[in-house]
Amino acid sequence: MAAEIEVTLDVMLARRKIRSKELAAEIGMTEANLSLLKSGKVKGVRFDTLARLCEALDCEPGDLLAVKRGD
């Protein structure tokens, strides 16, 4: 199985104690898209979206994404 990228946004949200709704409003994204991103049901993330997420959550891209290595 090939390696996959896992979105760990929900972990960071819990650490920062921020609700999805608040984050979506802060970075100017719809709640629906944020929910898709959290569940990993998207093909990719734009760099500007990633930058806004990092800015709002005060973190690095690596804190939001992880590599899930296959066997």
Binding site: N33, L34, L36, V42, K43, G44, V45, R46
Partner: peptide, 8 residues
């Protein structure tokens, strides 16, 4: 467009 919509 469909492919682009799958990026957030």
């Amino acid at each position: 467009k469909q492919e682009n919509d799958e990026f957030v």
